[in-house]
């Protein structure tokens, strides 16, 4: 599903964010990207949703090399690759229902389609009862679930999560990660960047570790946060 081949990213200011990364993630897989702040986790995800282009190498998503994707094609890639952030990024003056429906609005979905998909997605993340609430009335964990619902509502094959538990307490974090694992279980490819050691160890899934932009470890099933 996601293939990075010899990818390097050098920012305009000369910072080398990634060096010669080779990474292959299959359809329906759940993978952690770990590493300290500034190790290149966010850059790696940004490559996949084409917020940045690689300086060198290929980024293939769903069979398409997106390294040289023209800007006007980027929106269509984003419909296949959705992203969840640490800071939720919900619209404060829209209800939960509207926030989730917003992702369908911008794709020109019909009212009927919205009324079918939004409740379904809210149910999936366990927020059916909060549909008419506003983001500020929800706990941080609930807000993150709204954000996940918004990412899932148009059923993208890839879901990226950049430190989705960064603002959450351990219990909430665990719930969110469980939710993401469930989503992966239904066939969506999920890649989560994190530096939450407890979660990574408890999940025991694939772990890709970055140190200063270099991929130093790729532990398949049963991965731990620290190298054994």
């Amino acid at each position: 599903m996601i293939h990075l081949q010899q990818v390097s990213v050098v920012y305009p200011n000369g910072t080398r964010a990634l060096s010669n990364v080779d990474l292959h993630i299959e359809r329906g897989e759940f993978a952690f990207i770990t590493g300290a702040s500034g190790s290149g986790k966010s850059t790696l995800l940004a490559l996949v949703y084409r917020d940045i282009a690689p300086t060198e190498g290929k980024v293939i998503v769903d069979g398409q090399d997106i390294a040289k994707l023209p800007p006007r094609r980027v929106p269509y890639l984003r419909r296949k690759v959705s992203v969840v952030f640490q800071d939720f990024r919900l619209l404060p003056d829209k209800t939960i229902w509207e926030n989730v429906g917003f992702a369908l609005d911008v794709l020109g979905a019909s009212r009927r389609e919205k009324h079918h998909k939004v409740p379904l997605t809210l149910e999936l993340v366990g927020l059916s009862s909060k549909a008419e609430d506003y983001p500020r009335e929800l706990s941080a964990g609930e807000q993150q679930r709204v954000c996940i619902a918004r990412s899932l509502v148009n059923m993208p094959p890839v879901l990226l999560a950049d430190e989705p538990t960064g603002n959450l307490d351990p219990d909430m974090s665990w719930e969110i990660v469980q939710l993401l694992a469930d989503i992966a279980g239904q066939g969506t490819t999920v890649v989560m960047a994190t530096h939450d050691k407890r979660i990574v160890d408890r999940m025991g899934r694939r772990v890709v570790q970055l140190v200063q932009g270099m991929m130093v470890r790729d532990a398949k099933e049963g991965g731990r946060y620290d190298a054994p």
Partner: peptide, 16 residues
């Protein structure tokens, strides 16, 4: 800008 960013992230075309 937040709204625009979100629209861009969920795949709205620039014209939209």
């Amino acid at each position: 800008r937040r709204e625009i960013r979100i629209m861009q992230l969920v795949g709205a075309t620039n014209w939209f």
